[in-house]
């Protein structure tokens, strides 16, 4: 060091590198701080809900209907309603969104018309959810005569998350290298075979990510399902989807009235009795738990799909 480093040119290089690396260090610190802040807010929120709702977080709470007495009230109807709505939403949004995205990406010619569709799909993601609620009230509830049902709510939320699913799927489809498509085409595959055997399976990870983001948004949405007329106080469950006699599956539940977790929470928070606020906190913690569970399943699925794929 002492003898070699006397060269002034070398000294200048070292000083320059040191200065530039300083920015690296600064960015790392900023990034860490921002990340910790974001995580801390989430943790505090969640812990606060859990602590506040702790007295009510038990099995009875999950298996009781709403009640006029705070200590008897539970969220059975709400979490069953929310789960069923999510099933409908996922079953509608996934095939429709994926099909739309694959069509736009693989089949549609690139012209001004598809360009307009693209811009509109992206814009739809920014439309306030109450607008979807109003649309659904007119279309699903009255025009299609679905009434204030689980089907109507599921379809509404599916519409709401459709743009998210489409955009995420298109990104994932676009990420499949051209070389892979060419390899399949060169073996004599048709466009449908290339899509079904290669493009879709390889982009499943991205599609699932889009579904996670979409469903996480849908599960907490309150405005659109209030608009279509969710009840806030029900003491019955939808008809069971599995029946004792043939054909063992029933879809009557689709037409049943429902309530959902955010609505139940909203209802409790707006009551004067502070005991209900404990219920609201417990319901909030449960809703977050449901979201985490749903995301966990999706992340596990995505991991399984991506394990083999590594361009």
């Amino acid at each position: 060091m002492a003898t070699v480093a006397q060269d002034p040119a070398l000294q200048a290089i070292r000083a320059g590198v040191g200065r530039r690396k300083l920015f690296d260090a600064i960015f790392v610190i900023i990034g860490l701080l921002v990340m910790i802040a974001a995580l801390a807010v989430l943790c505090v929120l969640f812990l606060d809900l859990v602590v506040q709702g702790a007295p009510r977080l038990n099995w009875d709470f999950l298996t009781s209907y709403a009640s006029r007495k705070a200590e008897n009230a539970g969220i059975l109807a709400a979490w069953v309603g929310t789960s069923l709505i999510m099933v409908v939403t996922a079953c509608v949004a996934m095939p429709v969104g994926v099909a739309a995205a694959v069509y736009l990406e693989e089949y549609a010619p690139k012209n001004w018309f598809t360009a307009i569709i693209e811009i509109n799909v992206t814009n739809l993601a920014g439309v306030p959810s109450i607008i979807y609620g109003l649309l659904a009230l007119g279309l699903f509830v009255y025009k299609f005569n679905l009434g204030q049902s689980i089907a109507a709510a599921g379809l509404t939320l599916a519409l709401l998350i459709l743009p998210i699913v489409i955009v995420a799927t298109r990104e994932a489809v676009r990420a499949v290298p051209r070389a892979i498509r060419e390899a399949a085409y060169a073996l004599g595959a048709t466009r449908w075979e290339v899509t079904a055997h290669h493009v879709l399976p390889y982009s499943m990870g991205g599609v699932l990510t889009g579904m996670i983001i979409g469903l996480s948004r849908a599960i907490g949405e309150t405005a659109p399902i209030i608009t279509i007329g969710a009840l806030s106080f029900i003491a019955f469950l939808p008809s069971p989807p599995v029946t004792a006699e043939f054909p063992f599956l029933s879809f009557a539940w689709l037409k049943d009235a429902f309530t959902a977790m955010p609505i139940q929470m909203f209802n409790w928070v707006s009551r004067p009795d502070p005991a209900f606020r404990v219920n609201a906190a417990a319901a909030g913690a449960t809703l977050l738990g449901m979201t985490l569970l749903m995301n966990g399943i999706a992340i596990w699925l995505r991991f399984r799909f991506r394990k083999r794929i590594n361009w």
């Binding site: 070389a179 060419e182 390899a183 085409y185 060169a186 073996l187 004599g188 290669h198 083999r308 794929i309």
Partner: peptide
């Protein structure tokens, strides 16, 4: 039909995942 009769090997190895 043409591609079913004439095969191709590309510049970069492109096995399916």
């Amino acid at each position: 039909e043409v591609r079913m009769r004439i095969g191709m090997v590309f510049q970069k190895p492109n096995p399916f995942p």
